[in-house]
Amino acid sequence: MHIWNIALSVVLQEEEEESTFLGTPFHRPGLAPEELFSIGPVHVTNSMVTTLLVVLVVSLLAIWLTRRMQLIPGGKQNFLEVVVEGLLGLVEGAAGRRVGRIILPLIGTLFVYILVANWFALLPGIGTIIYHGEHDVPLLRAPNSDYNMTLAMAFLTMVIVQVAGFAAHGFGHLKEYFPKVGRIYLVNPLNIIDEFARLLSLSVRLFANVFAGEVLVGVMLALSFVAVFAVIPVVVPAIFLALEVFFGAIQALVFALLSLIYISLAVGGHSEGHDAEHDDDRAAALTQEGAARS
């Protein structure tokens, strides 16, 4: 679907009538991921295949970067330390030193995975290599343009938020949902609705962004392909691909930061070394700092 894939997509999709988009050979992504094949009751979709590929890439990269680590870091170890220290600074800044160190693996993994997945989706071959099964469908699809993926990550985050709340306050955590007034416990529906709203917003935001990006780049490619707009068929999609690189990083940061804030809220505070928490500029500074690091 992307700019480097024009030739490939023309070759691979020329027989497929369904995939035409504005009269061009580009595949227009649908809301649901396409099923490739089934293993027993498990329906393997194209986004699952890409997800596994991304996991493989991130894992191999991590193994390679952490081989032969030394006290005085060299090239690749330096790179990794910059990334980890950047994330650590961000997490500790929001959640405090003690809690920050505990949740760093989760927040770091979410950030790195979403970032790599979003950028991976811009590579040639994603959406253009066709799998000839029951139907002709793209073999690979951006992992986060599948709502199942983003919902699963958001669900995991919200479960961890609850776990963190119980770990910090014990059963006192339930007071948030069931406040005690006098001698009776009431149900606080707003807080319960809030949890589901967070789940929904966290998952829909990432999904909508990546999906809109897919459509955006697809539309731009298709428009460039149409004769009237074929004056600059390389430049226009390239601009939007660059935008997608930027949006991909922003969305990874947003998802990780929001997860971080939800968890630190559940833990109930910024325990130590956190004097600046009433600074009104903090929110903007945190985001800008994160954007600069990403």
């Binding site: 947003v254 804030i261 929110a283």
Partner: peptide, 12 residues
């Protein structure tokens, strides 16, 4: 606290 709510709103 105020800053966390602002951060939430901003990032979201």
């Amino acid at each position: 606290d105020n800053s966390t709510v602002r951060a939430l709103g901003l990032v979201s």
